[in-house]
Amino acid sequence: MESIFTKIIKGDIPAYKVAEDDRFLAFLDISPLQKGHTLVVPKQQTDYLFALEDTLLADLNLFAKKVALAIEKATGATRVGVAVIGFEVPHAHIHLIPINTMDDMNFANPKLKLPKEEFEAIAEKIRTNI
């Protein structure tokens, strides 16, 4: 069965894309912990991050690094936190979250509710910093 991320990759579900190449896609999380919270996924649907072939896993991390540096510039965050949890969607993915304190990355915190226009502006700002 296709994951929600595969449906986003195929264009069946819209997303606020920030970066894409032939193997990877980065898009804003629609229930972000912080403005600029981005998900990075391989286009190949694989349930578990560490089930990815070594080269694909390494390249996914390099792609995520490029996106993280753009998020840092776009948001002015002190750092970009990285989280891999893997239970919520059966498709390997990396959370990139702009943070200024460790508490900014607490998944128990309430998620932000942002209007479409704000998501679009954040995505554009990240794209321009890549």
Rank of each mutant, 00 (worst) to 15 (best):
I4R: 15
E72F: 01
L39T: 04
A15K: 02
T75H: 02
I97V: 15
K125V: 04
N129R: 14
V18P: 03
I30H: 10
T6R: 11
F63R: 06
Q34C: 10
G11W: 10
H91D: 06
D54A: 13
T6G: 02
T38Y: 11
T6H: 05
P115A: 06
K65L: 14
Y48T: 12
A108I: 07
H91Y: 05
T38N: 13
K65E: 14
F5E: 10
A68T: 05
K65D: 13
I8K: 12
N106V: 10
I122E: 01
E120M: 13
P90A: 12
F5W: 05
G86T: 07
K66A: 14
I94W: 04
A83P: 01
A58C: 07
I94Q: 00
L112T: 04
D59F: 00
A83L: 08
V84L: 06
H95L: 02
K17V: 14
E20L: 09
A70R: 04
P14V: 12
N129P: 05
I71M: 07
H93R: 11
K116D: 11
L39Q: 03
L28D: 06
M1G: 15
V89K: 06
L62G: 10
D104S: 01
G81V: 07
A92W: 00
I85H: 07
F87I: 13
A70Q: 09
E120R: 15
I85C: 08
K65G: 07
D54W: 00
D12V: 08
E2P: 15
L62P: 06
S3F: 03
K111A: 14
L96Q: 03
V40P: 09
T75S: 12
I30S: 11
L96T: 01
Q34D: 08
L33F: 03
A51H: 08
P98I: 01
F50H: 15
I85E: 12
D59C: 03
A68Y: 05
A19G: 02
